[in-house]
Amino acid sequence: MGNGLKMTYNVDMVFCIDATGSMQPVISTVKQNALSFYHDVVRVMENKQKTINSMRVRVIVFRDYIADDQPMMTTKFFELPAQAAQFEACINSISAMGGGDEPEDGLEALAYAIRSDWTKEGTKRRNVIVVWTDASTHEIGYAKSDPKYPKGMPESFNQLTEWWGDRQMEPYIKNAAKRLVLFAPKAPYWEQISSTWNNVIHYPSTAGRGLEEFTYKEIVDAICNSI
């Protein structure tokens, strides 16, 4: 105390969005509010007496490697509020379509999210991954035979679990900083993640309904509860 060290709170978020056809409702909700997202989060956090010094958001759009031409698309981090307009344009360019069979490739999206280029700045950090999906996931590697499937993915769900880490092992994301917010059905593998990984907050969604049951306010509150 009194040493002149300025406390800074830097928040990085990665939005993993299932953009298959049934997800139209929640994608529309996010689109309608993308521009004000930063200010909405800051307002809620101020009510909690917390100040965010830096906020960055990255988006991962996932579908199904076998069924879709663009199964896994990512952006760089947007710095908010400076790049709020770009973030809004990015969100508005997402189309809900495709998907093939019911399980999607959400675990691969999670792998990309965990391996994000998280900020190293700030005396206090929060690395938040938010997953929006109304579907279960294939097991990791399900689409390995597809030419679009990337190299370097975890070999198994257990290895993905190791990537998420714990107190003793934090290969890609700091244990104290990480949070995983799941808007996902109680279905494979979301339920396993919810029950076995640490620092996970699961808001169960109804399968196949595009998360229509969640209002924007509930989404913002859920995210703010994690930071």
Binding site: V59, T74, Q86, A89, I94
Partner: peptide, 21 residues
């Protein structure tokens, strides 16, 4: 039709293939 389905061009402006890890 689906006016919130913006063109693929706009999508490509912001998103790129995730690629290998």
């Amino acid at each position: 039709e689906q006016t919130d389905h913006n063109s693929d061009e706009q999508f490509q402006e912001w998103f790129s293939d995730a690629g290998d890890l």
